[in-house]
């Protein structure tokens, strides 16, 4: 039975329709690149108001997240990702999409356990491991170099 399983899984892999890897990659490049250019425009706008590049990055993130939330609410962002894949998911607008979409979806389950808890279903892991990794990296760098 186990050999039959292995054989069948191998057959499945052989016959499985291929993912359109090249097309996905090109679309991810274009969509991701364009979102970053939009981000650059916003950052440039804030820099024009007299901020340094570094100071401008925080308000830029806020505006992009606002746009990501708006596009998700209007039902456009899932279409951007359907074509752009990681080009839509990886930018911070995708992070907004990951928070807004479950909150919208579970609105019918109430404000506390529906919206409140579900905001973090997809974004939670990113925050947990992002924060932990940043802390570990900061601590190691502090130990090794003496300056964090």
């Amino acid at each position: 039975m186990d050999s039959e399983k292995a054989r069948y899984q191998q057959l499945t892999q052989e016959m499985m329709p291929r993912r359109p890897v090249l097309r996905n990659a090109i679309m991810a490049f274009v969509v991701g690149g364009l979102i970053c250019v939009v981000g650059q425009c916003i950052q440039w706008f804030f820099m024009h108001q007299g901020m340094s590049a570094k100071e401008a990055s925080s308000p830029t993130a806020v505006v992009l997240i606002g746009l990501g939330a708006l596009f998700t609410g209007l039902g456009w962002y899932d279409r951007i990702v359907k074509h752009g894949g990681m080009g839509g998911t990886l930018p911070i607008t995708g992070f907004a999409n990951a928070m807004v979409s479950p909150a919208m979806e579970f609105r019918t389950e109430g404000l506390v356990m529906g919206v409140g808890a579900r905001l973090f279903t997809v974004a939670g892991p990113v925050l947990v491991y992002g924060m932990t990794a940043a802390m570990v990296v900061g601590a190691v760098r502090w130990l090794i170099t003496g300056v964090a």
Partner: peptide, 30 residues
């Protein structure tokens, strides 16, 4: 600083995501 620094720097983005997420969930329907 190991505990406070990360979130302080990222607070704009995280708080924006929470607030906009909440507002969008109240306004829009999937």
């Amino acid at each position: 600083g190991l505990f406070t620094g990360g979130l302080t720097a990222a607070s704009g983005g995280i708080k924006a995501a929470v607030v906009f997420g909440l507002v969008a969930a109240l306004i829009f329907k999937p």
